[in-house]
Simulated scan of single mutants.
Amino acid sequence: MKPSIYVTRKIPDTALQLLKEHFLVEMWEEEETPVPREVLIEKIQTVDGLYCLLTEQVDQGLLELAPNLKVISNMAVGYNNIDIKAASNKGIMVTNTPGVLTESTADLTFALLMATARRIPEASEFLRQGQWKSWAPMMLTGQDIFGATIGIVGMGRIGEAVAKRARGFNMEILYYNRSRKMEKEAELGISYVELNELLQRSDFVVILTPYTNETKNLISKEELLLMKDTAILINVARGGIVNEAELYEALVQKKIWAAGLDVFEQEPLPMDHPLLTLPNVVTLPHIGSASIKTRIKMAELAAQNLIHALTKDTPQNLVNKDLL
């Protein structure tokens, strides 16, 4: 009898076929709508493996209902939607999909930085609303990128990829990380500084650190007040790393110049959220890795993680390595 798995969202056909070669597969057929919690509760009680997205909260309560569950494959790099400790306590492997989305996410990060600095969405709307009456010397002027100073908070794979792009713009590259990366400093032309110094010196502060208890509200009022009033904050990591209420106040009071955000504390972002009222905020619906090739690679990697885990082979992308 093949192991049984549940897939919480419609995934690309190539990944689905991989799974069907090895497992009895049941899938929530909606592409845009997350699986309802009550359905997930029902399905988790019998399956051997769970293929999920960031939209599913796999907490201790859910895991207690899963006597047969052996592996959770998260189609994402992050895994703050999963209670890792609870999974480990039950001997359940948790896997993720790092690496394959590095370049696409770095592309999006730099695109968001440029769009915010040069006010591209605002300028497009200005034209579409018929407000463009004449050329004017200071109309829709933004901030220069070439030769500016970028501060990257979190120098993992994506941070390194963003640094490579920043080099092409002749930027001074500062970084802050949990551990210093001496070997990368010469290779990438980056300089390690403490967080406060990074905030004070940077024209662009780019958040790329994982979301943990230590990084929750890492950027709040105190940190925002350290930044230049011409500085731009870019967040493509997780929403909870930046205190959104205090970011809003900093933007309204012109303590910083603008923000570009791909992630939020609550997703989807409510349409009455105060940040949506500000012209100097560029907002995206969490599309950091959203290229066609990358999403297919992520889906296939998440499938391979399940296959390895349920065929007695250690998954390459095991998160809770303490199980080994």
Rank of each mutant, 00 (worst) to 15 (best):
K2Y: 07
P3Q: 14
I11C: 11
P12G: 11
L19Y: 04
E26T: 13
E29C: 11
E30L: 13
P34C: 11
P34R: 07
R37C: 09
E38Y: 10
I41P: 00
K43N: 11
Q45D: 07
L54N: 08
T55P: 01
Q57V: 07
V58S: 04
N68C: 10
K70P: 02
N80L: 09
N81M: 06
S88F: 10
I92Y: 02
V100M: 06
V100D: 02
T105L: 05
D107Q: 12
F110I: 07
A111V: 05
T116D: 03
R119D: 03
R119T: 08
I120F: 10
I120V: 15
A123M: 09
A123W: 00
E125T: 11
F126L: 05
L127E: 06
G130Q: 11
K133Y: 11
G142P: 02
D144Y: 06
I158H: 03
E160P: 02
G168H: 09
M171Q: 12
E172Y: 06
S179N: 15
E185R: 08
I190H: 02
S191I: 10
V193S: 04
V193D: 02
L198E: 03
E223A: 15
L224Q: 03
L226C: 10
L226H: 09
I232F: 03
V236Y: 00
V236P: 00
V242S: 06
A245S: 09
E246K: 03
Y248G: 02
A250N: 01
K254C: 05
I256G: 01
W257R: 07
A258K: 01
Q266F: 10
L278G: 01
V282T: 14
G288T: 11
A290P: 00
K293M: 11
K297R: 14
Q304A: 07
T314N: 10
P315I: 08
N317P: 06
N317T: 12
V319W: 02
N320F: 09
K321H: 09
